[in-house]
């Protein structure tokens, strides 16, 4: 993150944003606009560390420590995701905060996960966020073939 025009620190745009990470997916709601967002895997990790106050440099370090792939691609992807977060007013640059990256432990993992560039998805309705594929396989009554479900709501 050598680009001096890129803020070194961001913070979640409280009180306008509410968020939760559920089953590895970050769900974000902008209360001002009513828009819903989701980002999974790497995006959820980035959001989690941003929310906890880590600097951009430290988030990048954590990503390169955790994921296998081209470091330059990881940096470009992180920068693009942060720009999207900023454009959607989910985060704002935070010049005032004194960051203590020592509080965030990130060690290089021996078994790295393949890096997949994070994607921020935007929805205007909650059910759009949760859409499944169309039901094609139905029985004689029109009931869909039972999903391979778990015993959880």
């Amino acid at each position: 993150m050598s680009d001096i025009s890129f803020p070194p620190h961001f913070r979640v745009n409280h009180p306008h944003i509410i968020h939760e990470i559920i089953e590895g997916e970050a769900i974000l709601i902008n209360l001002e606009t009513g828009s819903y967002y989701s980002t999974d895997q790497v995006g959820a990790v980035v959001w989690d560390w941003l929310e906890k106050g880590a600097s951009v440099a430290h988030i990048l370090k954590h990503i390169t420590n955790t994921y296998a792939g081209d470091t330059r691609e990881m940096e470009t992807s992180l920068r693009a995701l942060l720009r999207q977060f900023q454009d959607e007013r989910l985060i704002i640059a935070d010049d005032s905060a004194a960051k203590n990256d020592a509080a965030f432990q990130s060690r290089s993992s021996s078994e790295k996960i393949p890096f997949v560039a994070p994607v921020l998805r935007k929805y205007t309705e909650m059910e759009d966020l949760l859409l499944l594929d169309p039901i094609h396989d139905v029985d004689a009554t029109g009931w869909p073939q039972r999903a391979a479900g778990s015993n959880s709501p």
Binding site: L131, I135, P144
Partner: peptide, 10 residues
Amino acid sequence: LPFTGSMVAR
């Protein structure tokens, strides 16, 4: 069910 071709959310 008249849902064929329509969509059901998760």
